[in-house]
Design a protein around this nucleic acid. Sequence first.
DNA 1: GATCTTCACTTGCTTTTTGCAAGTCTAAAT
DNA 2: ATTTAGACTTGCAAAAAGCAAGTGAAGATC
Lengths: 160, 160
Amino acid sequence: MTRRARKSDCPIHFALTVFGDAWTLLIIRDLMFKGRSSYTEFLRAEEGIATNVLADRLARLEEDEVIERVTPGEGREAKRYRLTPKGVDLLPVMLDLIDWSAKHDPDTAVGESFVRRLRRDRAGVEQEFRARLLAAVSPAPEKQPPATKGTPRELRRKTR
Amino acid sequence: MTRRARKSDCPIHFALTVFGDAWTLLIIRDLMFKGRSSYTEFLRAEEGIATNVLADRLARLEEDEVIERVTPGEGREAKRYRLTPKGVDLLPVMLDLIDWSAKHDPDTAVGESFVRRLRRDRAGVEQEFRARLLAAVSPAPEKQPPATKGTPRELRRKTR
DNA sequence: GATCTTCACTTGCTTTTTGCAAGTCTAAAT
DNA sequence: ATTTAGACTTGCAAAAAGCAAGTGAAGATC
C-alpha cells in the first residue's frame, strides 16, 4: 500500500504506518534494550539490515519523531540516535511483544527469570526501563531538569 | 529480508516474522475489535487490502496458528476465521498500540472515554475483551449477524 | 434447469520495496 | 600522504505489493 500511506483513522493502522515493517521495531529494540545507538551498531545487529534500508528507516523514524539525532559533542565520536519520549512510549508494546514471543515461541531467547518478573511485576519492570530510557532523552543542555529522584547516576552514560 | 526468515532468537524479531508487515495486524484488528471474520469482510475494511495479499496473510496466520478457519455449519454461510488463544494473546499488544496512537496521533479515531478507561483500568478492559474473544473461540457459531456483535462503539467514535 | 450472484480465491502483469555489492564523502588516525 | 572508520548513496537484481481480471463452486433467481 505504499506502506506509509494513511488510509484510515484507525489507531492500529496509524501505528503500522510508523513501524509496520520488518525492520523498524528492531532499531527501536536496539535503542531500547541493546544499547546500540549508531548507524554501524545497528548494522551489526544479528538480523543484518541492509545499509540503504537502515538509512531509510532512520530518516523515517526521525521524521516521525520516534528517534532523534544526538548532536555530537565537539570531540569526534560517532553520530548517535536516541529515542524521543514518543519512542520511549513504545516500551509497553515492546514488553508485550517479548511476553508474547516468550510464551509462543520455543526458540525465543529471553531469560526465564526476566519473563517471570515481567509477568509478576509488569508495572515495576516498565517503570524501571522507562526511567532509564527517559534519563537519556533530551537532557536540555542549558537547564537542569529537576527530575533527579530515584535515578541512578549510571544512567548518565550516553554512549554504550 | 524475505520477511519471514528467522534470523535471530530475539523475541521482537520473532514477533515480526509473524506480523511485521503493514497488513497482518489489520486482520487481527478486524477479528478482535471490528467483528469482521470472513474474506469479503476483511476486504471491505477501509484500508483496502489487495485480494492476493489477503489470501496470503490469512494462510500465514493460519499456519502460524494465530487464526483458524471455522468449519462452517451445514447451512451454507460464508467461511469464517477466528482468533486462536495465541491470537487472543495479542490483545495487550493491540491495546498498547491503540493507547500509543491515541496519545501521539491527533487524527486517530478512538473515543476519549475509551482511552480514559483504558488508562485507568487497563486490567479490566483487557479482561473484558479477553473474555469476549475467548468465548468465541470454542463454540460452534450460531447463525448470527457478526458485525453487530460486541464492538464497543467507543472504538468507532472519533475524538478531536 | 439455465442463468445470475456471491464468496473465496488465483493468475498475470506492473510498480514499489528489498537485498546486496560497491562506491562516495568526510574527518580523524597513522 | 595514505589508511581507516563512520555514515551514507547508487545501481541493479530479486522479492513483494498493487491492480485488474478470471476461475470454480454453491445457492438463489427466473
